[in-house]
Design a protein around this nucleic acid. Structure first.
Lengths: 140, 140
DNA sequence: ATCTTGATGTTATATTATAACATATTTGCG
DNA sequence: CGCAAATATGTTATAATATAACATCAAGAT
């Protein structure tokens, strides 16, 4: 009855390769960027990437950024899928950094809204677009 | 010094055609669906649609649904751009309907979160995915 | 008038994603 | 074990979404 808490062990070869590529990246990657990075490891076709991504997203190890058509490794220690409707992203349009957030007030507000309109929520896509703290202050 | 409140008058021919197509539709349309609908009116190339859409989105008359790669006419009487960071969508994955929402608690929560992490918010993408009230109750 | 700006037209191409089908590998179970 | 079912992989082709680059046209300003 021991529930799996880490999928790492269960990942197939392709899933592991894609997961590693995303984990090593310091930002979101497009499927085709991943493909290019994995050609050395035998990847030849987009489907190899997309199929692995589908599973990784399903496992909650990877998130898709809808407003970027790109993918990021989950930034939480062990993101296990129950956060699917409860994760937010802050995307900096200056430096491209993505910060993953879990904000209770926001989650509550979303669930409240869904309830208010009698909407059965499966997932919520919440992406803040703007300029991150570092870019605002430090760099230009 | 009279500020324009409706862009309707200012729209160009192509913008008007695209806006009309979206307004007549009872749901979101992809750029290529719009293109097909406007071939009779002389449209030949995707850019004609995308350029019009860019402007309409800029004016706040049309919203892009990032998780669908599709576009909807703004459902508010006179959506004038200041709502750009303050609109949400409930997208039914059963019937495809899209409901546009403006929820103050949610907007507050988003702004609060942005402030909390010192993020300069330009726009927020908030799309609830699930099953709408009508589909849950009425149909199957 | 002509200059600038914005809109349009057109061809080509880039980017993102899936369909369809064949083969291989793993897993469950009698 | 041996076989069936399910899952993963490989491969080719194609669909769907979006932009680059460049030519032309129309409207308003000085």
């Amino acid at each position: 009855m021991t529930k799996h808490v880490h999928h790492q062990m269960d990942l197939t070869k392709n899933q592991t390769l894609v997961m590693t590529a995303l984990s090593n990246a310091n930002g979101p990657l497009s499927a085709y960027t991943i493909l290019d990075e994995l050609r050395d490891h035998g990847f030849r076709a987009p489907l190899q990437v997309y199929r692995a991504l589908d599973k990784l997203v399903e496992f909650g190890l990877v998130h898709k950024l809808e407003s970027l058509n790109a993918f990021v490794a989950c930034q939480h220690p062990s993101c296990e899928g129950e956060t699917k409707e409860s994760v937010q992203f802050a995307i900096c349009e200056k430096c491209g950094s993505v910060r993953e957030l879990v904000n209770d007030s926001l989650i509550k507000a979303v669930k409240g809204l869904a309830k208010e309109i009698d909407f059965s929520l499966r997932e919520s896509v919440i992406e803040l677009r703007g300029v991150c703290s570092a870019c605002k202050n430090g760099g230009h």
